Amino acid sequence: MGMWGSNIYSNNDHKWTIYDSTKIGINSAYKIVNNVKSGEVFFCSDEGLTIYKAGQWSNLNKNKIKELPSNRVAFAKRDSKNRLWIGTFSGSVMIDENGIATSFNETPTVLKGKCIMSMDEDENGNVYFALYEFDRKDKSLVNNDEGIAICYANGDIKQFTTSNSGMPFNHVTKVLYDKSEKILWIATDRAGLVRFDLKSSWENYHNENSQMPTSYISDMAFDNNGILYLATRQGLVKVERRK
């Protein structure tokens, strides 16, 4: 699915379907997230979280979930435990498998004051987040209290930044867990690509030590063969696996 103009389009076997935005309730989205396992497509917008599943549309907003800090939803994704993680530009929320919502602004965790901008999960149930600090005290700072966070299977949450890890820069645009190598790829804005082995090794690839044309990465994804592609300011970059 995708958006063009004020409508939503989907393509199935070369057949296009147009969805009327006036009936759905949104005409734009910050991000579209495909949850393959649950059969849901999430549209993150200023009107909350719009969900498409099995031909039906629904919406989650502050009127339905009082714990939601804002209707300005930047990201949402469901994990293997059927927990729904939602990042808004005023804070993040997790709705568990029983429908109970937790606003992290009301907790002492590292997710307090943060917006989840990206998320992935490994085979052991550890969940990885890219964080955005929405209420920065010093607006002039470029490297803020962001980085990544890991919510371990036991519920503990730990943040990794330039001050306590090998992160080269704290503004992260995407995290992807690599099942074949069992490592975490971290895309940054300004500092290139990071390879974290989830133990103690951090490798940083950018335009000064590799063939990457720029250190600004806006997005990344695996293809069906597990090849990593980066969307950068200077085009698409293919990352070859080590042999």
Rank of each mutant, 00 (worst) to 15 (best):
T173Q: 03
T232L: 02
Y205N: 05
W85R: 00
G147Q: 10
A187T: 05
T50S: 01
M220L: 05
M167L: 12
G39F: 08
V142P: 05
L184Q: 00
E123D: 09
L111W: 11
A74Q: 00
M1A: 12
E133I: 05
M94Q: 02
A76H: 06
N7Y: 14
I148Y: 02
N27H: 07
V41C: 01
E123P: 03
G91Y: 06
D156N: 13
D122L: 01
K158G: 12
S38Q: 03
T109Q: 01
G226T: 07
G55S: 13
S92V: 12
E240N: 06
D122N: 10
H206T: 15
I26Q: 00
E47F: 05
F104R: 03
G155K: 02
L131T: 09
T22Y: 10
D20N: 14
D13Q: 06
K179R: 07
F75A: 00
T107W: 11
R83K: 14
K158A: 14
D145A: 12
N143F: 13
K243G: 09
W16A: 10
V110S: 11
I183A: 13
I32D: 06
I150F: 07
S80V: 11
V237P: 00
K199G: 07
N35K: 05
W85T: 13
L131W: 14
N34F: 07
N164K: 11
T107V: 10
K238T: 06
I18S: 12
N124P: 05
T161A: 09
W202G: 01
G226Q: 01
L230M: 15
I217V: 15
D13N: 05
N225V: 04
R242E: 10
